[in-house]
């Protein structure tokens, strides 16, 4: 790895580390910077001494949890974006190409619209409303991923890239129709569904973390081990096979890993667009096409992007009102991306 690439990665990692405490500064409760940092240090057990309980709760649990979730989700989405673009050799691919987002939306809207007996059954099983929505979204996302991969595999057992893309489109269209159907039949849940689909980290706390990690870690492992395969795949199937890659298998594991990672992020934070496409493209310009540095950079870059987009989403309007973070990423990402495309 040349020194320039290494330096950029080091800067990104440093920014990522600094972003976490800095992003905890913002919030509706007026707290000064030393107060926030002190509470954070106390939460991590770095300092002793009494800290006001409310402050510890607000900073150490609510704010820190939300920032950590944003960092992980952003990183996961950007990483999945790099993997999808690499596997499908299509710069327009994003983490949602396989229909994972539509599956999550479908699961979430069904859970939101759930009423009466079914809801009581779910509650008796120990699900809170929010937990039910997240679990249902995850199930929908994984189901959609499974369908797309299954449909994308031909009779010869090989996963062809065009077929996977088409399968993703089919799955998305079908599940999108179910979401529309739920909205049409159950008007009182439309607002909640729309808000969920736009993506937000509002109200997400440490209890979301196990679910996120359960999907993020296997995905990280699959995609992280696949960086060498991604480099070889960028030469096309034929040359990749000549260089000793089992193309079908590599593609399956990369897609499954990226999809699994996306499913977790989407189940926790809703459908946050643009992180998975803007971050990889910016980093590709900075780091070049080698997938080792690119995947590392994407994890940090995507995390930074989503942490600060989330900060903006809760401060722009003020007064405790929040914007969906997906709207912020698209509002900022759109023009930025357009400029980037034009300058190239």
């Amino acid at each position: 790895m040349d020194t320039r690439v290494f330096r950029i990665l080091a800067v990104l990692a440093a920014c990522w580390l600094c972003s976490v405490p800095l992003a905890c500064l913002s919030g509706p409760m007026p707290l000064s910077a030393p107060e926030v940092f002190h509470a954070l240090a106390a939460r991590l057990g770095l300092v002793d001494g009494p800290v006001e309980a409310t402050r510890l709760l607000v900073v150490g649990d609510i704010r820190l949890a939300r920032v950590c979730l944003a960092a992980l989700c952003g990183g996961g989405l950007a990483l999945a974006g790099v993997a999808l673009q690499g596997v499908l050799r299509n710069p327009l691919a994003d983490p949602f190409t396989l229909g994972v987002s539509a599956g999550a939306a479908c699961g979430a809207s069904l859970a939101i619209a759930l009423t009466g007996g079914a809801l009581r059954v779910a509650q008796s099983l120990g699900f809170s409303q929010a937990g039910l929505v997240a679990a249902s979204a995850l199930a929908g996302a994984l189901l959609a991923l499974f369908c797309a991969l299954w449909l994308g595999t031909g009779e010869d057992g090989a996963l062809k890239q065009e077929r996977v893309v088409l399968a993703g489109i089919a799955v998305s269209a079908f599940l999108g129709a179910i979401v529309a159907l739920v909205k049409a039949l159950h008007e009182e849940s439309v607002t909640s569904i729309v808000f969920w689909i736009l993506g937000s980290l509002q109200g997400r706390g440490w209890d979301s973390l196990p679910m996120l990690l359960c999907t993020l870690l296997p995905g990280l492992l699959a995609v992280g081990l696949g960086w060498r395969a991604l480099d070889v795949l960028s030469l096309g199937d034929e040359q990749a096979a000549q260089l000793g890659l089992d193309v079908g298998r590599a593609r399956f594991w990369l897609l499954a890993g990226a999809g699994c990672m996306t499913a977790g992020c989407v189940a926790v934070a809703g459908i946050i667009g643009f992180v998975g496409i803007v971050a990889p493209h910016v980093l590709r310009i900075l780091l070049g096409p080698g997938h080792g540095p690119l995947l590392t950079g994407a994890f940090f870059g995507g995390g930074i992007l989503l942490v600060w987009a989330d900060v903006l989403s809760r401060t722009l309007t003020g007064g405790g009102q929040e914007l969906p973070v997906g709207v912020v990423t698209a509002l900022l990402g759109g023009p930025f991306f357009a400029m980037l495309v034009r300058r190239r």
């Binding site: 960028s234 030469l235 096309g236 034929e238 040359q239 096979a241 000549q242 260089l243 000793g244 890659l245 089992d246 193309v247 590709r284 070049g288 096409p289 080698g290």
Partner: peptide, 24 residues
């Protein structure tokens, strides 16, 4: 043969190779 084993026995210089342009 597994693809890796095959690639240790035979190497190919293809005729019309598509290459990602950004690679060094």
């Amino acid at each position: 043969l597994r693809p890796r084993e095959r690639a240790r026995l035979a190497a190919v210089v293809p005729q019309r190779a598509e290459c990602p342009s950004g690679l060094s």
